[in-house]
Amino acid sequence: MSEPKLLKLVIAVLHRDIVASLRRGSEWSNPLVFFVMVCALFPLGIGPQPDRLADLAPGILWVVALLASLLATDSLFRGDFDDATLEQMLLTHQSLYPQVLAKTLAHWLVTGLPLSLLSPMLGLLLHLPGEGTVPLMLSLVLGTSVLSFIGAIGAALTVGLRKGGLLLSLIVLPLYIPVLIFGSSAVKAAIEGAAYLPQLAMLGVFFLGALAFAPLAICGALRISVDQ
């Protein structure tokens, strides 16, 4: 396939997926609502003292954003699987790799990116020190994209199963750990006045690695799920 054609395919899939999820609404708004609600539970659970919350805020915000992204992942291929679009994607001779890449990117654009943009507001609620706001957003932008790719592998593996949701979190959560470690550490480092670029650079490395290799695993997993 020639390059412009490939690019056209990617853009077409991206456009279709983004429009579809924006039209449905719940797909992009539910993770955000979840993010806000769970963050609001923490002060109720551990007490309202600002200094204590500030201490825990980087970890809380990162863990909750991770869970919100995880919950959104389940629906990544579900719709296409149910209406047999996925089967068609596999049958056509157009290569699967760019389509999967586009679908995952579209998913990140409607879930991960809004989560990252909303995070400063939740940082305020949890008394996150001001120095942490920008690193929080940057680390979430990079980190949630990696989470989307890893989550897509799990979603592709479980899409054919009736009770996929909880299983998906079991198989995907251990793989999220490196992203969580470097993401929350970037925010903490910034608050302590240390350099946070190394952590962001690591997240960037993870992103490039996921970009290169995760679609391979996703394609393989989709074939298995559709063939069974």
């Binding site: 592998i153 593996l157 198989i171 793989l175 750990i177 490196p178 993870f206």
Partner: peptide, 16 residues
Amino acid sequence: VLAIVGAVNIPIIYWS
């Protein structure tokens, strides 16, 4: 597939 993805990730997880 999951075992391979896990095995690829183990060095990264351990190092992290």
